[in-house]
Structures are given as structure tokens and as C-alpha cells.
Design a protein around this nucleic acid. Structure first.
Lengths: 341, 341
DNA sequence: CATGTATACTAGCTCGTGCTAGTAAGAATT
DNA sequence: AATTCTTACTAGCACGAGCTAGTATACATG
């Protein structure tokens, strides 16, 4: 490892002079002659010097490292992380990962954030209890926390997410625009925050169109990864009894299951039934037929969360928590069509 | 921030004594009385001390941080990273991310690895040129590099991946076991290493069964994300002209496209056509019908890459590059069935 | 009583960097 | 010629930690 001392020896000056040269404009008041400056720079290049960010951090009392704490399971998480990475890059920050997937406790993550002197934390977590713990422990150490995508709005922690209510409304407005009136709503039994907000969008759009949503048109299925008998029974029963002409599904996997059920029953999508999903996950474009869905700006969310967090870090003092809701976008594919007369 | 000095003051001993107490058994020869030890420990707990890993790293001349360099695009990458994270956790290492997705150059990543004194690098990259550059630059700085999943086997850089040849063989053996003989092979036009190895598995299984694979049964489609006319034409033509009873697709997205094509043509899967995919991506279980596929152990790959890298780091001297091929697993769902007589 | 030997602790150097105060030499001013 | 001022650089402390050598006390042994 090449240090400033090595450069100093090579250039015939002291380590301190090397420091002054390499830190350039930052250190005001100390003048270095152009000749010396050039000689030092030349030696630094020649020896392949790169500064030791760790030693620098010890001295500065802070790092330019942000920690990401999340589950590490989902594919959209990767896209969000990519956005965070891009956002941090622009500010000269780097990213550390703490995934809570394999026996990694939140306590460990918090401890390591402190040990590594991270400048801030971005987390994606559905667990409110843990979030409060995280936030309390870290703000106590002066480490700001920011939630991204999956999070809970509160007045003590910033949050960047996409506008789920608007997304639900857009989806239903799309169906209304195609002439549908008997529009169903499909959610998972364990209603998370998303489902609730997207459902709100559904209700808002229906009401705005002068339609009072029929409660019977709402259906929920248990949360199961596969495609099980129970789900088949519920969805078939729903389609046969309620006969919706279109269904807004609050998540893509649900929409795909509805497609499977319709396929089983010989109900043609989009001819006899229009289906809208939510999230634009990988498989949405591969379903039969390719799914019309609401695309969330995962990368943008990550990028914005990163930028906001860096703002807080670089900002002067106490800050008001950021609360950003990014717009979503309809992706119209082949699972929705004009209502047949 | 609480330092050892603070604890020393609080406990009425010197900073050095605190260091001895907290470093426990590691520092041999220096005896601390149980009374003092307990008092120091108590104060450390009370003040909420956690050691500064950065300062420790400066002194030790190394960190316990591994860098991940990858694309940051795909969902299976997230699973691999989760595995890496789990593997590192077991060894007391932590993970830094450098995603090359948004204007982040490999040079930047390399520079930052040096600046941050990372102990090793795990990368996932298809780009051989860059890999050589990465490997050269980093091993020069004494930082070992390990490839995971997407990588090139070579004698100068370790690689952990799954056994693609065996995977291809297993998929085809599964179809042979169902009575199929006229088994097609679907790949993407831009043949990557995977496609090649999985195809090798196909040929090996066919040959072992005494069948000479008909070259006309192999079909390739252009690499397009969506579901375009060109692909529809190629796949329909293939199915109608060659009439395979089963097709092994070297990747899940290809398999899903074949399902779409079959659906268009009214060919029933699995009654008239069995389809096997590869990778067990999210959408494989959501296709119509749910896809039989070869599951890659992404998490295990990550975990093993992490463990191997830590071995190299902790090992005494020069090492022979690890080359691990992990077994894959057939996931049998509903897209394959016995050949109709 | 002198010497040896555990025990219990601290002084002081080190890692690589950042910053302030200080010094030496030459130029400009009085 | 004595003084200030500017330029160009270095000494020295600091950050938080690790480690070795050294010291002071208590106790056992000759």
C-alpha cells in the first residue's frame, strides 16, 4: 500500500506537503509552489497512490457510506437498490448492504452501522416495530434513516414511495374508459398498506365515475406462493358468481392467478374479462395474455431516497422528514379491452 | 461517539487497559484483574460503546469487508447477493455494493475497492475483458477476486456456479422418462455460455438414450425482452413444421414464450407438448400451466463464493483458484406430461 | 533481608490521514 | 538597515484503535 509518506520520500518533501497538494483547494491558506505540486502529483501517479478512505474517515469523524437494510428477497428490491446505488454515486457516496434474510438480526445490522460509522441508512421494511427500534437506535447515534418503497408514513422518519392511491385510480380509470362498469377488486387476505391504498384508488375512481362499488365485487385470496386448490376454488367461484367484466388486482401475482382461474373456466381474457395488475414485475409481460399493469418507478424511488438522505446528511441541522410520493405509469398490454356490447 | 478513552475515564483506568479488557483473550500475556475487567465492561455497556471498525482496520491494515461488483439488474442477482450476504455473515464479514448499472464504471469500482481497503471482491460479470482488467488491477493490490454464477472458468480466477451441463441433462432425462423421443431445444440467438452448456447436457442425454438429436429440432429466437411478431413467427413455424412432442428451453423466459406460441396455435401444454424451462425464476410458477424447470441454487452459489473468498483471504499464501459447480434440481410442475400414445 | 516472580496496570509507539501553528527564507516596505 | 509581508514548507497534535515494552506492587523463595 502506497501512503502519503512514500510519496513524500519519493518527491523529497514532507508527508504534510503531500497532503496539502493532494487535498488541493480544500485546505485554504497553505501555498505550495507549482513545481513542488507537479512533482508530488507526478510521484503520486507513478506510485499508484490512492488515498485511504478509512483513515480519512477516522480523522474526519464521518464516512461517505450509506447502509441499506432490507429483506433481500424480491426482484423489485434489486431494482430499488440499483436506483439507490445510482443516486449515491452522483453524490460521491457508496453503499453497504445488510440483508436480514439469513439469521441476520436487525440488532446486528444496527451495531454494524455504528461500528462502520455509516453516514445514513436506507431501509425497506414492512415491520413497524423494528423500524421504530431502528430509527430510535440510529438517530440516537446521529445516523439519519430513510425508508424507501415499503415503509410506513410517519412524522419521525422520511419515506420515498410511489403513489399507490393514484395507481389504483389510474388502473380503474383505464377500465372505466374501456366501458367497464362492473369492475372487481382482487386483493390478498393479509391486507398490507399497499393493498389498502390501491383499493382506496379503486373506490375513488369508481365514486368519481358515479358508481357505488358493489362490496360483493371485492374478493380476497389467502397468501400462498404457489397455485393451490383453495385459491382456485375462491377465484373460480368469484368469477362465476359475480361475473365482473373487469378486475383490478392490487398485485401482479394476484392478476396472474386470476388469469389462471379464467383460463381454467374458459373465460377469455381480454374478450370476456379485462384484468389489470400492479407492479410491472418481470413476469407481467410473459403472462397469457401479457398483463396490463401499473408500473412503479423502483429505480426512481431508490434514487430519490438516496438523494434525500444525502441532503439530510449534508444539511446543517435538524430536518423535517421528507415524504415523497412518485408518480406511477400505466403499462397497457393485452389483458384489457373494450367492454363487449 | 463513545471511545475507549471515555470508558477509561469513567472506570478510572487508562485507555490501554480498556483496550486489553475489550480485546479479551486475543492479546496474550497481559493480565487484568477480574474486578477491573468487570468495572470496565460495565462502563462500556452503560455508555453504549461499540468499537470503531474503521480505526481498527487502519491499525490492522485490513478490513472484513467484501465488495460485490455486478450489474444490478436481474432478480436472481438479488438471490445470489442474499446468499453472499449470508455466507459473509457466518465469517464475520460485511458486504459493500458496486453496481455498474448507471454510469458506474468498472474503474470507479476498482478505485473504490482500494480506497476502502476491501478484503476481497465477488463479481458477477459476463464481460471477460473487464474481468481480466478487474482481476489484474486488484490482485496487484493483493485483493483476491471471485466470480459467482455468471463468469468464465479460467485458471487465474475462482468461480462458483451451478452445473449447467448436468441441468440440461436432467431436464432431457426427465422428458425421456416421460416417453418423449422427439425433443426440441430452444435457445436464444446470442448464445451465451449457459445456453452452450445446457445444450451440451441436452446432447449428452439424447446420445446416452441412443437418440441422435435432429438438428432441425433446435431453434433459436432473437433476444427481445417483449413478445414480438418475429418471435411469434419463428416459434409458430417451428412448432407446426417440426412437431416436437417436448421442448427443452435453456431459459425460463424462452419457455414462457413457447407457451405463448403454443397457446396461440391451440397446442395444449402438457397434453400435446411438454415444456421444460431453466432457472426457476419468479414467473415460472405463474405461467399457464406452471412451468417444469431446472432450479439453480442461487443462494448456495452466493454462500459458497463468499466462503471460498474468505478462505482465500484468511489462508496463508498463494492459493489455487476454486472452481465449484453446484448441483441443480428439477422442479416438476404442470408443463410436462407422459407422451400420448 | 535480598532476590525472584507473578499480577496489574500504563507509557509510548504505530497505522494513514487532516489540520493548525509555527518556522525559515526571500521580497517588499518603511 | 530594520521592519513587515508573502511564499513555501514542516512540526506536531489529533482521530480511535492495537500492541509491545516497561513499571509498580504484592507475594513467595533463598
Amino acid at each position: 500500500m502506497v501512503t502519503m509518506k512514500d510519496i513524500g520520500i519519493a518527491a523529497g518533501v514532507s508527508r504534510q506537503t503531500v497532503s496539502q497538494v493532494l487535498n488541493g483547494q480544500r485546505a485554504g491558506g497553505v501555498h505550495i509552489s507549482p513545481v513542488t505540486r507537479e512533482r508530488v502529483m507526478e510521484k503520486a501517479r507513478h506510485l499508484g497512490y490512492h488515498r485511504n478512505e478509512l483513515a480519512r474517515a477516522v480523522k474526519r469523524g464521518r464516512t461517505d457510506v450509506i447502509a441499506y437494510i432490507g429483506g433481500g428477497y424480491t426482484s423489485f428490491e434489486m431494482r430499488t437498490i440499483a436506483g439507490i446505488n445510482a443516486g449515491l454515486k452522483e453524490c460521491g457516496f457508496t453503499l453497504k448492504m445488510f440483508l436480514l434474510n439469513a439469521g441476520n438480526s436487525l440488532d446486528d445490522a444496527i451495531r454494524q452501522c455504528r461500528e462502520q460509522m455509516v453516514a445514513g441508512v436506507i431501509c425497506m421494511s414492512q415491520h413497524l416495530d423494528n423500524l421504530e427500534q431502528l430509527h430510535r437506535s440510529l438517530t440516537l447515534s446521529g445516523i439519519p434513516v430513510m425508508q424507501v418503497d415499503e415503509g410506513v408514513q410517519c412524522d419521525w422518519c422520511g419515506l420515498v414511495r410511489s403513489d399507490d392511491v393514484a395507481g389504483g385510480r389510474m388502473a380503474v380509470e383505464h377500465l372505466l374508459g374501456l366501458g367497464h362498469r362492473r369492475i372487481g377488486l382482487l386483493a390478498a387476505e393479509c391486507d398490507n398498506r399497499y393493498a389498502v391504498m390501491r383499493s382506496q384508488g379503486y373506490h375513488a375512481a369508481m365514486t368519481a365515475a358515479g358508481i357505488t362499488p358493489d362490496p360483493a365485487l371485492k374478493v380476497t385470496v389467502p397468501v400462498i406462493t404457489g397455485w393451490e386448490e383453495q385459491q382456485k376454488r375462491i377465484l373460480s367461484g368469484y368469477l362465476l358468481e359475480q361475473r365482473p367484466t373487469a378486475v383490478f388486482c392490487v398485485a401482479d401475482p394476484l392478476a396472474v392467478k386470476l388469469l389462471l382461474a379464467a383460463n381454467m373456466l374458459g373465460i377469455k381474457v381480454p374478450d370476456d374479462l379485462s384484468v389489470v395488475g400492479y407492479a410491472d414485475l418481470d413476469f407481467a409481460s410473459f403472462s397469457i395474455p401479457p398483463l396490463t399493469t401499473v408500473a412503479q418507478p423502483f429505480e426512481e424511488e431508490g434514487r430519490n431516497a438516496a438523494a434525500s438522505l444525502v441532503n439530510i446528511i449534508n444539511g446543517p441541522g435538524p430536518h423535517t422528514p421528507v415524504n415523497l410520493e412518485l408518480p406511477v405509469k400505466m403499462i397497457i398490454r393485452d389483458s384489457t379491452a373494450l367492454l363487449k356490447k
